[in-house]
Amino acid sequence: MNRSAMDLWVGIFVAASMVALLFLALKVSSFSGIRAEDTYRIAARFDNIGALKIKAPVRSAGVLVGRVASIRFNDETYEAEVEIRVDNRYRFPKDTFASIYTAGLLGDQYVGLEPGGDEQYLADGDQIVKTQSAVVLEKLIGQFLFSKAAESQADSASPPR
């Protein structure tokens, strides 16, 4: 075994591994984790958050602007308190509207921010007042069936011709 040849091979091995790691880091994955220091916190209360999870994306106009930091249940108001961390680069007006949407028909749920027209911007620790809860499919179906039933009842109540 030639020593210098061995060194060469180990060198090739390490270099190839580094290239592979760079490929995995730059081409395959992204650093989606926005660093906690570069964010500000906003609270929002929802009647129902559906299947929203911690680390779920926060989007505005479809662009990722932050992540859900924590979810708590408030046992006085019986609401869900969601804490959002928004990237420092983006500012939102005080009257921004927060809703919970579903990506696609079966996808994960995310928080959507729709900016209002207020002159003042949300700062660290502020609360979003206007929120819309997640759409719960069962509820929707239930309502639909109920209204259908009511309709048909109304139909049957009317005198036959």
Binding site: V28, S29, S30
Partner: peptide, 14 residues
């Protein structure tokens, strides 16, 4: 590539 990059997180997956 873009769908891959969008859903693979460096810290979490790699």
């Amino acid at each position: 590539w873009s769908s891959m990059q969008a859903s693979v997180d460096f810290r979490h997956d790699v």
